[in-house]
C-alpha cells in the first residue's frame, strides 16, 4: 500500500484551497463548503487505499467532494436550485459570429480604457457577474473550473469529460463571449466618464 504512505496530512491539506473554491462555487455558502471539504479530507484520509495515484490526487479528491456536495443537495431538498452543470449545449457555429468568412474579426476587440480601474468599482463586478452568468451552462462550468477553481487544463478535461480539442474550443468561446459582454456592457459605456473623470 505505497499510495497510502504518500497521503500525508500535509499533502491533503495542500489541496484544501482548490477543494474549497470548488465547493464554494457549487454550494455558495462558505460554512457548507468548509464542511464538505472537511468531510472529503476525512474520507480521503480514511480510505487512502482507494487512491490509486493514477488519476492524480486532486481528481480523486474532487470525485469524493462531488459525492459530498450531492449528499448535501439531497439532504437539504434544495435540488431545484442545484446547478445543472451536466446540461449539454453546443453553441456550434456561434463562433462564426465573431469572425467573417475570411477569418478576420467581425467587429472585434476594441481598446479598453483603463481596465485596472474597473476592478476597483463595485458596478463593474455586477456586470462581470451578469456576463459570467450569461455563458451557456456547460461553458460556464468549464470556464469556472479553470479560472475560478484553478484546475489545470487536463484536470478540467477529466472533470468535465472533454476531449482536449473540445476544451480549447469551449475556453476560447468563453473568452470571446465574456470579452464581448464586458465591452458592450461596461467598457463602451464608461469610456466617456473615464475621460472626464
Amino acid at each position: 500500500m505505497t499510495a497510502s504512505l504518500l497521503l500525508t496530512e500535509q499533502t491533503l491539506a495542500a489541496q484544501r484551497p482548490v477543494l474549497f473554491r470548488y465547493a464554494l462555487l457549487q454550494l455558495r455558502d462558505s460554512a457548507l463548503a468548509d464542511d464538505a471539504v472537511q468531510e472529503t479530507l476525512l474520507a480521503a484520509w480514511q480510505s487512502a487505499a482507494g487512491f490509486e495515484g493514477k488519476a492524480g490526487l486532486r481528481t480523486w479528491l474532487i470525485g469524493i467532494l462531488k459525492h459530498k456536495i450531492a449528499d448535501h443537495w439531497r439532504r437539504s431538498a434544495r435540488e431545484a436550485v442545484a446547478p445543472d452543470v451536466d446540461r449539454a449545449d453546443d453553441g456550434e457555429a456561434e463562433e462564426d459570429d465573431y469572425f467573417i468568412s475570411s477569418g478576420h474579426w467581425n467587429g472585434g476587440p476594441k481598446a479598453w480604457a483603463d481596465p485596472e480601474a474597473a476592478l476597483k468599482q463595485q458596478e463593474f463586478w455586477a456586470i462581470y457577474e451578469v456576463c459570467q452568468n450569461n455563458l451557456p451552462p456547460k461553458m460556464a462550468n468549464v470556464f469556472m473550473l479553470r479560472e475560478l477553481v484553478g484546475l489545470d487544463a487536463d484536470e478540467v478535461c477529466r472533470e468535465a469529460e472533454l476531449s482536449e480539442a473540445n476544451y480549447w474550443v469551449i475556453m476560447h468561446r468563453a473568452r470571446l463571449r465574456l470579452r464581448e459582454c464586458l465591452e458592450i456592457r461596461w467598457f463602451n459605456n464608461t469610456l466617456q466618464d473615464k475621460r472626464h473623470a
Binding site: 464554494l24 479598453w112 476592478l119 463586478w125 462581470y128 459570467q132 475560478l148 464586458l182 465591452e183
Partner: peptide, 13 residues
C-alpha cells in the same frame, strides 16, 4: 483582454 478576464475571475472568486 483575455489576461484581464483571468485576473478578474480570480478577484471575483
Amino acid at each position: 483582454q483575455s489576461r484581464f478576464i483571468r485576473k478578474a475571475a480570480r478577484r471575483y472568486v
